[in-house]
């Protein structure tokens, strides 16, 4: 499961939904891995305004990953003027001519899309429920009394 997905998952229990502590879920005993994925700065531009930046920052701290800045960057920070370098020739998704992705764009791709949680659990800070993650798949099935 991509770290990107963790930025959107909340506790699924109805009783937790209205509580601010039902997001984000907190990883525990996490095993991380890297999966090579096509680089799409156009996707990052689309998703960046929707990220919860404090949650992303907190997640990096909890996982012991190099942190992201305090301030959420705007989509314009993903591109700069210049020719597309050879190393970026296989990018996917449309970008404006004469623009190339910045180092921040590459870093965010690596963090959000290529860093995945393979094993462990996700814990709700509100109710303490633990969602198991196995082979990258989080189990969100709730016993019926918790629905």
């Amino acid at each position: 499961m991509k770290l990107l997905t963790l930025n959107f998952l909340t506790c699924a229990r109805k009783a937790c939904k209205p509580l601010p502590t039902s997001f984000p879920l907190h990883p525990a005993d996490a095993t991380l891995a890297t999966t090579e994925t096509a680089f799409s700065p156009a996707f990052l531009r689309n998703i960046l305004p929707r990220l919860d930046w404090p949650a992303l920052k907190g997640l990096c701290d909890e996982l012991g990953l190099p942190g992201v800045g305090d301030e959420a960057p705007g989509p314009e920070a993903l591109f700069e003027d210049g020719e597309l370098p050879e190393s970026d020739e296989d990018i996917v998704g449309e970008i404006e001519a004469g623009k190339r992705p910045t180092k921040l764009a590459h870093d965010l791709h690596q963090l959000l899309v290529e860093t995945v949680m393979l094993e462990g659990k996700l814990v709700c800070a509100s109710c303490g429920h633990e969602y198991a993650v196995k082979e990258g798949i989080a189990n969100f099935l709730l016993p019926s009394h918790l629905v």
Partner: peptide, 19 residues
């Protein structure tokens, strides 16, 4: 390439607003 979740849509989805 997508992420997978084991979940029952009939229980409601655990995503924040506007995901």
């Amino acid at each position: 390439e997508g992420d997978l979740l084991l979940a029952d849509a009939g229980q409601g989805l655990g995503f924040r607003a506007g995901t």
